[in-house]
Design a protein around this nucleic acid. Structure first.
Lengths: 164, 164
DNA sequence: TGACAATGGTAGCCTAGGCAACTATATTAC
DNA sequence: GTAATATAGTTGCCTAGGCTACCATTGTCA
């Protein structure tokens, strides 16, 4: 069948898994740097992880999301999420409200201050992404996105365990 | 100029950075799972991170690497590396020896036991990688590798800070 | 040679994610 | 209606990476 890697061509460290890890580390580090050095945002001490939350809350124009939604969407631990939201709330960027319909749920939304800071964060995130994609054509970038999406879809399909 | 993302098409969460993060998380989780459930390897309690070290030591047929080399190659913290090597040494998979030529260096190599366990680890890692790449043609996989390599190269070039 | 910088490795402290236990609320089955 | 189950969120514990200070060794250079 169509396996990509076999014993003749699998070189740990040069394979997709390793590359993926390293690119991700580098992108997060770059984003952390930019967020920390930006005059406007430095006081907020935003981490890349926090940006991701804010981005997801800002994304949908309407519907405030719940914490559980967020965890699923970004593959993040629930306990860690609680603490992350604590930090963002302490900075005044987000607001938590118990949902009236389902009192287990927290409705999450950006505060006025959060919405105000968002455009600059978005700009920085875009710049970083563009830097990593320097030299890519738009077609290539779309292709890369598509590849990654396909890998994500493969992730949760019948995990044919390796014999065991 | 050729920026990939601009304000009209940048949707946080659907972009390459976010995808990358999630794919990486899923791959590591899958690898951890397989390593933990494999009959042969379960007693070693290998984490994906530890596998990466072992893989890098096994890779070069000759030359034992130094800890500092490893840190560079996989973008890993030196302090964390010390502790990681402690664990691997405790399991009897690797050996540390002071270099005679430069007594600051540690020469790292797999023990007999490490070499013995390696093939099975490699097999598992390959299986996981192949699962994530299910449906990919070999050409597509090579393309994906190339994209990621280009992003890595971009990572360390003149970090045109976002105005600041 | 002898001061000084650079490099490799280690240890301590801090932060943050993963997991398990727990509470509160909602849903399902009987 | 009540018991059993599932879900959302919080908390405590554990682990592990990042950062900084530190020691030993090596290289530089005057």
């Amino acid at each position: 069948m169509g396996d990509i890697y076999d014993s003749t061509n699998y070189q740990p460290g040069r394979t997709i898994g390793g590359l993926l890890s390293r690119v991700k580390v580098e992108m997060l580090a770059a984003l952390d740097q930019e967020l920390a050095h930006d005059k406007r945002l430095a006081p907020l001490e935003m981490s890349a992880a926090q940006w991701i939350i804010v981005a997801n809350l800002a994304a949908g124009p309407g519907e405030p999301k719940s914490a559980a939604d967020l965890c699923k969407v970004i593959s993040y631990d629930a306990g860690a999420m609680t603490r992350m939201l604590d930090r963002l709330e302490a900075k005044g960027l987000i607001r938590r409200t118990r949902s009236a319909e389902d009192r287990r749920l927290l409705k999450l939304e950006l505060t006025e201050e959060g919405r105000a800071a968002y455009p600059r964060m978005r700009e920085i995130a875009m710049t970083v992404a563009n830097r990593f994609l320097r030299g890519f054509t738009k077609t290539e970038a779309r292709q890369l996105e598509a590849f990654l999406n396909r890998m994500l879809e493969n992730a949760h399909e019948g995990s044919t365990r390796a014999s065991a």
